[in-house]
Design a protein around this nucleic acid. Structure first.
Length: 276
DNA sequence: AGTGCGACCCGAACGC
DNA sequence: TGCGTTCGGGTCGCAC
């Protein structure tokens, strides 16, 4: 599933492929994908040039000059660059055609992804963007910042790590990996997390995300990043999707549980419940 | 305010 | 084998 490392990989790949291309026309096949006005989307995009591609948390941001096109891939969103005359795949929902007759095609089997065309000055009026917390690589992400955000919360730390308003960009895969690396039980409540553990979470999230970005992200289940790029990080996963396998650290069997409705993998020995 | 949970989707995995 | 059912996963919105 696209988490911060996957989105970053998509961003870098797309920058190489479509930067400076000029939009000729837009074909919206599945209109629920577009959160902003559909007519604006069709009318404003033609003539615009892809000036830059940025990212905030898991949001991909196409810089079009006066406008930003925001794109959230949710679980299975991908981009492909194809020739305009290639047959349209049934999971391709939005097609942006450039003046050189290549397409940027948004592909999403689950149709969960969303796009939003906004004026640049309105970026921080978008609620989801405004609320984004600090990224794992942000220098301002400190143990104290985390401690302040979570020490009154009664929620399991796993659930807290998925909250984008605290740390931005972690999803279900990396949250499990960060907790394993921090040796914290996923069910431990926010209010029971010590400052020292916050330091471990900070260090681990930075390490896990930087490694994952270096590998081009994780390819798991149906998720492959765009353009045939296959992430290599899955071979470095320690717990996620490893139920029944031996912990690489201690040899105990990795367990799978549900936390806040989400599948959660952990080592019951390395991440004991009563450990501080 | 904080928390919990269903809805959104549909391919894959599972159960019989 | 074939069919019906359940699951998963990020985020939002609503209920408590």
């Amino acid at each position: 599933m696209p988490e911060i490392a996957e989105v970053e990989t998509v961003r870098n790949t797309l920058k190489r492929m479509i930067l400076n291309k000029k939009i000729k026309e837009v074909n919206i096949i599945y209109s629920k994908m577009i959160e902003s006005d559909i007519d604006d989307f069709k009318n404003i995009l033609p003539g615009k040039t892809i000036m830059d591609i940025k990212r905030i948390g898991k949001w991909l941001i196409f810089d079009l000059g006066k406008y930003y096109l925001l794109s959230h891939l949710r679980m299975e969103g991908k981009y492909f660059v194809k020739k305009h005359d290639e047959e349209i795949n049934k999971h391709e929902h939005v097609i942006i055609t450039f003046t050189d007759n290549t397409d940027l095609r948004y592909h999403d089997t689950r149709k969960f992804g969303r796009m939003n065309l906004i004026k640049k000055e309105d970026l921080y009026k978008v609620e989801a963007i405004k609320k984004q917390g600090l990224e794992p690589t942000d220098k301002n992400l400190t143990a104290n910042y985390l401690y302040e955000k979570i020490h009154k919360k009664n929620l399991p730390i796993k659930t807290i790590l998925l909250d984008q308003t605290i740390i931005s960009g972690l999803g279900n895969i990396y949250a499990d990996e960060v907790l394993f690396s921090s040796k914290i039980n996923p069910l431990k409540k926010g209010k029971d997390i010590t400052l020292n553990e916050c330091e471990n979470i900070k260090v681990s999230s930075k390490k896990v995300i930087e490694e994952a970005i270096k590998c081009g992200g994780t390819t798991i289940r149906s998720y492959t990043s765009s353009l045939g790029v296959t992430g290599r990080f899955q071979q470095y996963l320690n717990v996620h999707k490893k139920e029944g396998e031996k912990c690489k650290n201690c040899g105990n069997i990795i367990k799978k549980i549900k936390v806040g409705g989400r599948s959660t993998y952990y080592c019951p020995n390395c991440q004991k419940e009563d450990m501080e």
